[in-house]
Lab assay of single mutants.
Amino acid sequence: DETGKFLVLALYDYQEKSPREVTAKKGDILTLLNSTNKDWWKVEVNGRQGFVPAAYVKFL
């Protein structure tokens, strides 16, 4: 159920650099879980949760 969740689009490829991050490919649609940090947003992609740089994604 996606009610109340926001989707964001990956603008660039991002390769995770730590276990707390997730890899995303340009064009991926990610479920935004938390955007309270202006630099790192928590997302879910391909069943995995983790952080990506906020500058790499935008709201749909």
Rank of each mutant, 00 (worst) to 15 (best):
K25R: 12
N46K: 07
D1K: 13
G50L: 05
G27A: 03
W41G: 00
W41M: 03
E16Y: 03
L7E: 05
A55Y: 09
V57N: 00
V8Y: 06
K38R: 10
Q15N: 13
T23S: 15
G47E: 03
R48L: 08
D13N: 05
Y12P: 00
A24Y: 11
K42E: 14
V45E: 00
E2S: 14
A55M: 10
D1H: 13
Q15E: 14
G4T: 12
R20M: 13
L9M: 14
E2K: 14
L30M: 15
R48W: 08
I29M: 05
L32V: 13
W41P: 00
D13S: 07
Y56P: 00
S18E: 08
K25P: 02
D39T: 12
Q15S: 11
Y12W: 11
Q49E: 11
D13V: 07
T3P: 13
L11E: 02
L7Q: 10
D28E: 12
Y12Q: 11
Q15H: 13
V45A: 07
L60Y: 09
W41T: 01
A10M: 15
V45I: 15
V52A: 01
K25Q: 08
F59G: 06
G47Y: 04
Y56M: 15
T23F: 04
I29N: 01
K38D: 09
S35V: 09
L7A: 04
R20F: 13
V8K: 00
I29Y: 05
G4D: 11
N37C: 12
Y14W: 10
D13Y: 11
G4K: 14
V52W: 05
V52C: 08
L7M: 10
A54Q: 03
W41N: 00
V57S: 00
F59L: 15
N37A: 06
T36P: 03
V52M: 11
R20W: 15
D13H: 05
R48P: 04
D1Q: 14
S35I: 11
L32T: 00
L32A: 02
R20S: 12
V8T: 02
T3D: 12
K42C: 15
N37W: 07
Y14N: 01
W40H: 01
G47T: 05
A55L: 10
W40C: 06
R20Q: 13
F6P: 10
E2A: 14
Y12G: 04
Q49S: 10
F51M: 06
E2M: 14
S18P: 02
G27N: 05
A54W: 08
V22P: 03
T3H: 14
D1I: 14
D28P: 03
A24T: 15
K17M: 11
G47R: 01
V43I: 06
T3E: 12
S18Q: 06
S35N: 12
A24W: 09
Y12M: 12
W40P: 00
K17Y: 04
G50V: 05
D1F: 14
A24G: 04
A54S: 13
F59K: 10
S35F: 12
D39M: 12
L30G: 03
Q15F: 15
F51W: 14
K26Y: 06
Y56H: 08
G27R: 03
A10V: 15
A10P: 01
Y12L: 09
T23Y: 03
L7I: 08
K26N: 05
E2L: 14
D39C: 13
I29L: 08
K42P: 01
Q15M: 13
T23H: 04
K5E: 09
W41I: 08
L7G: 01
G4N: 12
D39Y: 15
A55D: 11
T23L: 04
K25W: 06
K17L: 08
E44F: 04
L60T: 06
E21K: 03
P19E: 11
A10Q: 06
E2H: 14
L9H: 02
F6Q: 12
N37R: 07
N34W: 08
T36A: 11
K5D: 08
A10T: 09
A10L: 15
K26E: 08
D1M: 13
E44V: 05
Y14H: 03
E44G: 03
G47I: 06
R48I: 09
S35M: 14
N46G: 10
V52E: 01
T3F: 13
T36M: 10
K26Q: 10
S35E: 06
T23I: 05
K58C: 15
T3I: 13
E16P: 15
K38T: 09
L33P: 01
L33A: 02
G27H: 03
S18K: 05
L33N: 00
A54N: 02
F59R: 08
I29A: 01
N46P: 01
D28A: 07
L32K: 01
T23A: 04
F51G: 01
F51Y: 14
K42Q: 12
Y12S: 06
D1L: 13
K5Q: 11
N34T: 06
F6W: 14
A54V: 08
K5V: 12
Y12F: 13
P53L: 12
T3M: 12
L33D: 00
F6H: 12
L33T: 03
D28K: 03
V22M: 05
W40D: 00
T36G: 09
A54E: 04
L30C: 09
R48Q: 07
F51I: 05
P19L: 11
A24N: 02
S18M: 06
L9K: 07
N34P: 04
V8H: 04
V43P: 00
V45R: 05
S35W: 15
A54G: 03
K42L: 15
I29R: 03
L7R: 08
K42M: 15
D13E: 07
K42D: 02
T31I: 15
K25T: 07
L33K: 03
Y12C: 15
L60R: 00
W41S: 00
K5R: 13
G47L: 06
Q49L: 07
Y12R: 11
F6S: 11
Y12K: 10
Q49I: 15
E2Q: 14
V8P: 00
E16I: 05
K5F: 14
R48C: 10
L7N: 04
K26S: 08
P53H: 06
K58E: 14
E2R: 14
E21M: 06
V52I: 15
K5S: 11
F59Y: 10
K58H: 09
A55P: 05
F6D: 08
G50Q: 01
N37Y: 07
A10D: 01
G27I: 04
V8D: 00
G27C: 09
D1Y: 14
F51A: 01
R48D: 03
L60I: 13
P19G: 08
G4A: 11
Q49R: 10
V8F: 08
R48K: 11
A10R: 02
N37H: 10
E2P: 13
V43M: 01
F6V: 15
K42Y: 15
Y14K: 01
S18D: 10
I29W: 06
R20V: 11
A54L: 05
I29T: 05
K38Y: 05
Y14P: 03
L9R: 06
Q15D: 14
W41V: 08
W40F: 05
F6A: 10
E16C: 13
E21H: 06
L33Q: 01
D1N: 14
T36R: 10
L9P: 00
L60W: 09
A24V: 15
K26M: 09
E21C: 12
Y14E: 02
A55T: 11
E44T: 04
P53W: 11
L9F: 09
N46L: 08
K25S: 09
D39P: 02
G4M: 13
T36L: 09
Y56V: 15
K42R: 10
A24Q: 08
F6C: 15
N37T: 05
T23Q: 03
V43D: 00
Q15R: 08
W40V: 01
Y14I: 07
L7C: 15
K38N: 10
A54F: 06
S18F: 06
K26W: 07
Y56R: 02
E16T: 07
Q49C: 11
T36Q: 11
A24M: 15
G50S: 01
N37E: 10
V57I: 10
A24E: 03
L33E: 01
V45S: 08
G4H: 13
K42N: 04
P19C: 12
D1S: 14
G4S: 12
G27S: 03
K58M: 14
D39N: 12
V22I: 14
V45W: 05
L60K: 02
V45H: 09
A10F: 13
W40E: 01
K38I: 08
T36H: 11
K5W: 12
L7Y: 14
K5H: 13
V8A: 05
G50K: 02
K42S: 05
P53K: 07
E16K: 12
V43A: 00
